[in-house]
């Protein structure tokens, strides 16, 4: 599957800004970059729904709204069910002649808490039923809205307020849940992993997700300066390092067939280009405790996990 749509940054700049400035995301907010990029991928009328989370809060502090498209938030764990309801209503209203548009896209946004954890049931149900919508997971790897608590998406040994870097337990003992693999296993037509550093890749994937008939799942890494403890200017740099170190490889699965996306494909073809995971970890305060004699061995352990997952992915992509 490929999208016909080709674009330049100028084309994007000339498309309307569907997320208005004046929203109250923190300076350097990764999710806000992800949202802006994704909303540049729209192909026509669209309705958005959002799970509870940072981006729900910062874009709609009453009486203000940053949304130039119809938008609804209802609760934390149910955004996929919102999308299901909207999509179904549109379908039947169109059939009954109550709708002026030929087609309206439906997009659901949720953070990692709303996806890996509390929203997984509704998401699984909605994609199993085959609703036609794009689900965007903006993964900032912890419950940032409530103050940086660990989620199923938090990586191994990251320090959060509920998995602090203690003297005995150095951050989150568990590993990041392979959420996108879980979505592929649902047999849905489109799943992709993207990083806002590779904007063209991310926007193209969002567009494919909208174009495909049936459920699409886009896993977008969304660095958070507050939660990851780095300088606000480094959001894109870190989003790029995640890909360069294979911590967050870019890929897509169309009807279950995996393929690597260009930035990761380059590394697969030229493994010497893969940067050590240390490069990714070192600028983030949430991993600072790993750079001590006591816990430094964990960096190797993380490198090992990253390698293992990368190899599995290469196998799926037929590049092992």
């Amino acid at each position: 599957m490929s999208s016909e749509w080709k674009f330049t940054t100028k084309d994007l700049a000339e498309k309307p800004e569907l997320l208005m400035p004046g929203h109250r995301a923190c300076a350097g907010c990764g999710p806000a970059v992800v949202y802006r990029q994704i909303l540049k991928a729209t192909r026509g009328p669209i309705i958005a729904t959002n799970a509870t989370g940072c981006m729900e809060v910062v874009t709609t502090i009453y009486p203000y709204t940053a949304w130039r498209i119809p938008w609804i938030h209802t609760a934390f764990e149910n955004v996929a069910a919102n999308a299901a309801g909207i999509e179904t209503a549109l379908k039947v209203m169109k059939r009954k002649g109550h709708l002026k548009h030929d087609h309206i896209d439906v997009i659901a946004f949720a953070g990692d808490g709303g996806t890996y954890d509390i929203g997984l049931q509704a998401l699984s149900g909605a994609v199993e039923r085959g609703h036609d919508f794009l689900y965007v997971l903006y993964d900032n790897e912890a419950y940032m809205n409530t103050g940086i608590q660990r989620s199923g998406g938090t990586p191994h040994c990251a320090s959060t307020t509920t998995s602090p870097a203690g003297r005995v337990i150095p951050g989150k003992p568990e590993y990041k849940k392979p959420i996108a693999d879980i979505m592929v296993a649902h047999g849905i037509p489109y799943v992709a992993a993207a990083s806002p550093a590779y904007w063209r890749d991310l926007i193209t994937k969002a567009r494919k997700g909208l174009e495909v008939k049936g459920p699409a799942f886009l896993h977008a890494l969304a660095p958070c300066p507050r939660g990851w403890r780095y300088d606000t200017s480094k959001t894109i740099e870190i989003a790029r390092l995640a890909v360069e170190t294979c911590v967050f490889p870019l890929w897509e699965a169309v009807d279950g067939e995996h393929s690597l996306s260009a930035p990761s494909k380059v590394i697969a073809l030229k493994p010497e280009r893969k940067k050590p995971v240390r490069e990714y970890l070192k600028n983030q305060g949430r991993f600072r405790h790993l750079f001590t004699p006591e816990f430094e061995h964990i960096i190797d352990e993380i490198e090992h996990i990253v390698d293992r997952r990368w190899k599995l992915l290469l196998k799926k992509c037929g590049m092992a």
């Binding site: 100028k10 997320l19 208005m20 400035p21 802006r36 959001t235």
Partner: peptide, 14 residues
């Protein structure tokens, strides 16, 4: 226009 694409706030206009 990379600055435009990476701005979290839509504060850069073309």
């Amino acid at each position: 226009l990379l600055c435009y694409v990476y701005c979290p706030d839509g504060a850069i206009e073309w």
